[in-house]
């Protein structure tokens, strides 16, 4: 019975560069190509964000006072009509 020789530095270096042994003897068939998953980005119409903005800054929802006055003048609305249409409740 002979003693198994201890590995040398060269053996270690060689082992590091040798490809691992494979159990199979034939080349594995190529994997079928799957389409790359597309990154799905959800978009919303700008109008949706504009509305959300109007509702969060509620002071912007009503018309400017000067425009209400102009509208009242053009359509012949009385001050009661204007109060009925634009008064904040």
């Amino acid at each position: 019975m002979t003693k198994k020789p201890a590995p040398t530095v060269t053996d270690f270096v060689t082992a590091a560069y040798v490809a691992p042994r494979r159990a199979r003897t034939t080349e594995a068939p190529p994997k079928p190509k799957t389409p790359r998953a597309r990154r799905s980005i959800k978009f919303v119409p700008m109008e949706e964000l504009m509305l959300a903005d109007l509702e969060t800054t509620s002071n912007l929802v009503s018309l400017p006072t000067e425009e209400i006055d102009r509208i009242a003048q053009i359509f012949g609305l009385s001050s009661d009509d204007v109060a009925a249409l634009y008064a904040r409740r």
Partner: peptide, 21 residues
């Protein structure tokens, strides 16, 4: 008041209606 606006031929009536609270 709203009926008066909807019946108006002036397109500005749209703004008057949109701003109604």
């Amino acid at each position: 008041a709203v009926q008066k606006l909807v019946a108006s031929p002036d397109r500005l009536a749209l703004r008057a209606l949109a701003g109604s609270a």
